[in-house]
Design a protein around this nucleic acid. Structure first.
Length: 988
RNA sequence: GCCGGGUUGGCGGAAUGGUAGACGCGGCGCACUCAAAAUGCGCUGUCCGUGAGGGCGUGCGGGUUCGAGUCCCGCACCCGGCACCA
């Protein structure tokens, strides 16, 4: 116990880490200066003085994490993976002389926060504030080098104000596809007032514009023509212009669950049409929701994907997603199918080019053509009632629910292939276009189905059944054209091994269990909602997950006399805050009462909903909007708030925005230099943020055209979980791996699963436990050494000790464990030490630039091991080696121990702004290298040679080798391949 | 069906067309110790061999090349997205 009193233990690490964290806070070590405004350089402390002199002139680096939704559950060790990585990059870049903007915010308006608020019946702010505080504490303990002045929460009133301001900006915009824009782009968002003028003057044909953007005009205008516009009244023109706003209200189908009193995401609805929580019936309802007209930007959103540095997989996903929203509405004749002689029905398809293969269509049960079943021809196939059940709230017979599976399986290949005996429509095979009559199906809409694949671009088309294409939106650009780029290699292969392992170890039925929690649910909730064809081409992009509360409110009110016309509040009235409602719990109903309607909790706050305002017509009572803003509001622009977090007069000061996000010299379109986060946000969040940013660009609020220049998708830390014979999770920590490859818990056999970490799975490891047992630096090093950042991998607590041993050896290079004295010698280092050090500098520098932290750490371990041997042999460590070494590795990766040792070596001030060492090319040269001698490509022998050896000398040396002559005995050398000094290949 | 990735020891993973398995975990052995822990040292793909050494090895089958984990063609399987379905 008493030995090695000065060893680097968890206790020592804890003391060091807290001390340095406090000092960094006090010194403002990681503050990044703005060119102008409140956060302009102040340079008070000594360490800052050096920085400030250069910072505004020095190159900038804006590094961001996808900010978290603070949940009450606290963090597990998987959460900070990306944060550690960005911190390593930020620290490294600071040492490279960059002015690094790096901070952290919290998206408190998330679905998790909302659900927690609903469940506990507390105001979302109360719970989120304590959650944020807890998360801040846990992350702070990791030593992340954030500029805390720039930290924010999306619930902050100042933040809400500008979120709402942007909303008004978008509300006040329409998209003019003809307007010239910067960079030779055609198409720009313009103020609504300009649209009114152009409508009045006849410069814009609203019908053409509506057609192009898939907009349905108000009823009053539906039957008029462009000629009527110029003569219309101001009110009529205003109404017409309103329909082109980039944010608008539409009715969206949602899953209404009276038993819970809430609207559910599709993911929360079981296959049987019941709520996952509570098993109540779920009904389809239409709900008024605010939507964004992203489709207007579809072309630019696709085109600019070629101008950002993103993984090809993500760009491909976005192209797919956006591209799909282009499509055609096709009118089919329904003549003879019903009593109505001229009946037609419309179908939306993204693949109009395959129309000739259409063999049948499927109608929604709500479709007008089906309102009178007796009018349908007897020949129509009769569907079973399965799909109807869901609408009626009557549970259909269950078919899923694999034994032991706690969730229904996710959609997927296997899923799709399963025979579905409950389909009410039988598909024709692709070669059976035999004129079979359209089938009456029970689907959520209309759909041309099973279209035969046949390329046929351009021109109006007329199929064999007289199918007439009424409108075709131009096909999206070829989504597959992009060349491979640098991130291609790893791509999206996370999950691969997991599933393989799962299959192997626990059988296929477990394989689908949960990947991704929290944020991913939001993303999936969005992706699950399918376009309702009634929304026409804009369907896909316009849809957003349903929401009832907890999000930012659109700052609009309604005149009770014109409840359909939203009136924007003036900027001076922002922010509009959530009311202090006492009861945030949902109002529940009789679970079977299909006649109930969703109600937002806000609408119950009568004295808040009714508000007296003077909006220019004198004091008047208005009704507030109770439907919330689109879900991604806060996360769509927080990068801008990081830049100018104290600004109150403009969204962001142009000088600051231009400095941090401005267009790049390499031709990029500007944006955050590095944005790290999970792939689950590949589409929705990133697309919305891009859309918002582009609207702001068009309106002149920002100079950059894209929010995120470089995107990096990190992998996930996953974990094993174990269930006993009853299927109940047992503490993973206490499971014993038996010699025969099985697992037991308290002597009983258990089954291994692999997937996410979670409290309910009893396999979560809290960072706090790691701090206590090893220290934050060890945790950081371990997480960075586990593998490449973009790959998912399993957490293994017992392996953490390897990283601790590494730091202990490093510590021992400097500090004598017995005496606490320095072990460091000022004598010049031996040549081999110098060479080893500089080779490490060289390798680590390159690894850091590529974000290959795992291999950087491997090289550092090698050097530490090398120096450890030297220490044992000579009793000391050369300062010449240990200082660059410490600077190199410890500082970005394990900053606390680096600071501590740096200080013990006699330095004052933080290590974090010392220049990163550069390798001396002279010292990268070795005096001897191994030359491999191959015979017919197989390694047969090795010799040591001079690295500068000539080919001739090398050949002579090789042929002179006794061993070589032996091996060549009786054979003729036909060819010699010499790649001095590394390889000689002898072909016989 | 389409698009994008992937498949390397017991495990996580290394490897600009040039010594496959760096580094770490685990395992085995040794030193230190009364003992254990910690630490240090050595070994650790697989088969044959006392050894020197040799055979085989990066999902499978071909190809290009003096030389292929790496490049090309085909295949299998896995993962992600779209579509389909719920």
């Amino acid at each position: 116990m008493s030995e090695a009193p000065h060893r680097y233990t968890a206790t020592v690490a804890d003391e060091i880490e807290r001390r340095w964290q406090q000092r960094w806070d006090e010194d403002g070590t990681f503050r990044a200066d703005n060119p102008v405004g409140e956060l302009r350089g102040t340079a008070e402390s000594a360490s800052e003085a050096a920085t400030a002199a250069t910072s505004s002139a020095s190159e900038k680096m804006f590094i961001m994490d996808m900010f978290p939704y603070p949940s009450g559950a606290g963090l597990h060790v998987g959460h900070p993976l990306g944060y550690i990585a960005t911190d390593v990059v930020a620290r490294h870049q600071r040492m490279m002389g960059k002015n690094v903007l790096y901070t952290m915010g919290y998206d408190a308006f998330g679905l998790p926060a909302e659900q927690y608020a609903v469940q506990t019946g507390t105001h979302p702010r109360t719970t989120t504030e304590s959650n944020i505080a807890n998360m801040r504490r846990q992350l702070h303990r990791l030593g992340l080098s954030h500029d805390s002045r720039r930290s924010l929460a999306t619930t902050d009133p100042e933040f809400v104000k500008w979120t709402q301001w942007i909303f008004l900006r978008i509300f006040d915009s329409w998209y003019d596809p003809e307007a010239p824009n910067a960079d030779g782009i055609t198409g720009r968002a313009r103020p609504i007032a300009e649209l009114r003028e152009e409508l009045r003057s006849g410069a814009v044909d609203p019908y053409a514009l509506a057609d192009r953007q898939g907009i349905e005009l108000p009823a009053a205008w539906a039957d008029r023509s462009a000629d009527d516009v110029t003569g219309a009244s101001d009110a009529e023109i205003a109404e017409l212009a309103d329909s082109f706003r980039l944010t608008y209200i539409s009715e969206t189908p949602v899953n209404w669950c009276p038993g819970l009193g809430t609207v559910l995401a599709n993911e929360e609805v079981t296959a049987e049409g019941r709520s996952e929580r509570g098993n109540f019936p779920v009904f389809t309802r239409r709900l008024r929701q605010w939507n964004m007209r992203i489709t207007a930007y579809a072309d630019r959103l696709i085109d600019d994907l070629d101008r950002v540095d993103w993984p090809e997989s993500i760009r491909s996903m976005q192209r797919n997603w956006i591209g799909r929203s282009h499509g055609a509405q096709i009118t089919f004749p329904a003549t003879g199918l019903t009593s109505a002689p001229e009946a037609t029905f419309d179908v939306f398809t993204t693949r109009a080019d395959t129309l000739f293969g259409a063999t049948f269509c499927v109608l929604s049960p709500e479709h007008a053509l089906l309102s009178d079943p007796s009018a349908l021809p007897a020949s129509w196939p009769e569907g079973t009632a399965q799909s109807l059940d869901r609408r009626r709230g009557e549970p259909s017979r269950g078919r899923r629910g694999l034994p032991g599976s706690r969730r229904r399986p996710r959609r997927g290949r296997a899923h799709g292939r399963r025979p579905r005996e409950d389909r009410c429509v039988h598909r024709s095979d692709r070669d059976q276009s035999d004129g079979r009559p359209p089938a009456a199906g029970l689907h959520r809409g209309l759909r041309a189905d099973r279209l035969r694949h046949r390329r046929d671009h351009g021109g109006p088309r007329r199929g064999r059944a007289g199918l007439r294409v009424r409108r075709e939106v131009r096909p999206a650009g070829d989504p597959h054209r992009a060349p491979a780029r640098r991130f291609r290699r790893r791509g999206l292969d996370r999950g691969r091994r997991e599933d393989q392992l799962r299959e192997r170890r626990s059988g296929p039925q477990r394989a689908r269990q949960g990947r991704g929690e929290g944020p991913s649910h939001r993303a999936r909730a969005g992706t699950r909602l399918r376009p309702c064809p009634h929304h026409l081409p804009s369907a896909r992009l316009a849809l957003l997950p349903p929401a009832l509360l907890g999000r930012a409110l659109p700052p609009v009110v309604y005149d009770p006399e014109h409840p359909e016309v939203p009136i924007p509040l003036p900027t001076s009235m922002l922010p509009v805050d959530l009311p202090e409602v006492e009861d945030f719990s949902p109002r529940t109903f009789d679970p079977l009462d299909a006649d109930t309607e969703p109600q937002t909790p806000l609408s119950r706050a009568q004295d808040w909903v009714e508000v007296e305002l003077d909006l220019g017509e004198g004091p008047k009572t208005y009704l507030r909007e109770t439907n919330t803003m689109p879900q991604w509001a806060g996360s769509s622009w927080y990068h801008l708030r990081y830049i100018d977090p104290t600004e109150d007069d403009v969204l962001v000061r142009p000088e600051n925005e231009k400095y941090w996000l401005g267009a790049r010299e390499d031709g990029g379109v500007g944006g955050v230099d590095l944005y790290v986060g999970g792939v689950e946000h590949a589409v929705l969040h990133l697309l919305y943020a891009r859309f918002w940013h582009k609207v702001l660009f068009d309106r002149g609020d920002v100079s950059s055209q894209e929010p995120f220049h470089r995107l990096f998708n990190q992998g996930y830390i996953q974990a094993y979980a174990y269930t006993d014979a009853r299927g109940v999770y047992v503490p993973a920590e206490e499971v014993v791996a038996e010699a025969d490859g099985t697992f037991t818990y308290q002597g009983e056999p258990v089954t291994q699963e692999y997937g996410k970490m979670g409290k309910s799975l009893k396999n979560a490891v809290a960072p706090d436990d790691m701090y206590e047992e090893y220290g934050a630096d060890t945790l950081r090093v371990y997480e960075m050494s586990m593998g490449p950042l973009d790959l998912s991998r399993p957490w293994e607590t017992r392996a953490v000790v390897g990283s601790q041993r590494f730091l202990q050896r490093l510590w021992r290079l400097v500090v004598d464990e017995e005496t606490g004295e320095l072990n460091v010698s000022d004598e010049p280092a031996a040549l081999d030490i110098q060479q080893a050090t500089h080779r490490t500098i060289d390798g680590v520098t390159r690894d850091m630039e590529r974000m290959h932290f795992n291999t950087a750490i491997a090289k550092l371990i090698e050097l530490v091991n090398h120096l450890t041997k030297h220490l044992i042999a000579t009793g000391s460590t050369p300062r010449e080696a240990v200082e660059p070494l410490l600077l190199l590795m410890v500082s970005p990766l394990a900053p606390h121990v680096a600071e501590e040792l740096w200080a013990r070596l006699g330095h004052t001030g933080s290590i974090s702004r010392i220049a990163f060492p550069a390798a001396d090319p002279e010292l990268l040269k070795a005096e001897r290298v191994t030359c491999v001698i191959q015979i017919k490509g197989k390694v047969r022998h090795r010799i040591e040679v001079d690295p500068e050896i000539s080919e001739t000398d090398l050949e002579a040396a090789v042929m002179a080798e006794e061993r070589v002559q032996e091996l060549l005995e009786g054979q003729t050398v036909r060819k010699l391949i010499i790649r001095a000094p590394k390889i000689v290949n002898i072909v016989v």
